[in-house]
């Protein structure tokens, strides 16, 4: 076709700003960071990786991170699914109300949301008052610096993301299919299990991947609500870089985090591609 060459130049011109930005401010810096992990005194070396594998502390951090991420993802799914389903099936007014209730916290700063848990879970916080009033505890103690606190905060932060991903997939399900299942003799529960649930799986997978990848790299809430035993990967990188100035080790741990994140990215990209990330109209 005539104009093929011309078209190529147009595409190039349109992509140029993005390519320059990402080349200079994303790919290259990340490459520089990675190169720090495989060099020792200017020479290629895997000594940092050996240190990583031989230090129980790092392995423990990785294990903690994966554990918290898996639990967060599963709990978000269990809590989020009915909410998303209700949102999809409710009337237009109830739907807008529910969307609003999910979107406002979604857009609210992580620090703000975590801060409120610090207020609630602290020694003289609301949760203790309620527990004492109920007679479940006698002496107030802080619920902070525990894995439970990290999970309660992180799940609350991630929940809207999960709900919106599920909701986006559920709106694609043809509503008459459930009626068809009922017409052919399926009970409400069986219709759900045999029709609705399988059709909502794209949302389940998308929501789970997004929640997991966000939690794996999460910093703010674990850092504020957790203690030393709940240190997650992002925190340990921050400590290595900003407090210990151990850049090679910071880079090495970063590689681990990057590999986990990019592995999920590859899966997500294969299943869904870029547009799904928008989750409809958020």
């Amino acid at each position: 076709m005539t104009g093929r060459r011309e078209e190529r130049w147009i595409v190039f011109a349109l992509l140029l700003p993005a390519l320059v930005l990402y080349g200079a401010c994303f790919i290259w810096p990340t490459g520089v960071l990675l190169s720090r992990s495989v060099t020792e005194a200017g020479e290629l070396s895997l000594v940092n990786y050996r240190e990583l594998l031989e230090t129980p502390l790092y392995l423990g951090v990785i294990w903690t991170t994966l554990r918290i991420s898996v639990v967060t993802t599963v709990v978000c799914l269990v809590i989020g699914y009915p909410v998303a389903m209700l949102m999809e099936r409710a009337g237009p007014r109830a739907r807008i109300l529910l969307l609003l209730a999910v979107t406002v916290p979604y857009w609210l700063d992580y620090i703000v949301r975590t801060y409120s848990w610090m207020v609630l879970l602290g020694r003289y916080g609301f949760v203790n008052q309620v527990l004492m009033w109920l007679g479940l505890v006698d002496v107030p103690y802080s619920h902070l610096s525990s894995e439970l606190a990290v999970l309660v905060g992180t799940i609350q932060v991630m929940l809207p993301l999960m709900i919106l991903a599920l909701f986006a997939a559920m709106t694609r399900i043809d509503r008459t299919l459930m009626d068809a299942a009922a017409a052919h003799g399926a009970s409400a529960w069986r219709a759900f299990r045999t029709v609705y649930l399988p059709l909502s799986m794209p949302g389940v997978i998308a929501g789970a991947l997004l929640t997991f990848v966000n939690t794996v790299g999460f910093y703010i809430t674990p850092a504020l609500l957790g203690g030393p035993r709940q240190t997650m990967i992002s925190q340990s990188i921050e400590t290595l870089a900003a407090k210990l100035f151990d850049w090679p080790m910071a880079a090495t741990v970063s590689v681990v985090l990057l590999v986990i994140s990019l592995a999920i990215l590859v899966v997500f990209n294969r299943f869904f591609g870029l547009e799904r990330l928008a989750g409809g109209d958020r």
Binding site: P29, L33, I237, A241, A251, F268
Partner: peptide, 18 residues
Amino acid sequence: LAAIIVPPIIKAISLYLF
């Protein structure tokens, strides 16, 4: 997609180094 998904700590220290 990667620009959204890569954890902020990695962006932070790599940009700082660069």
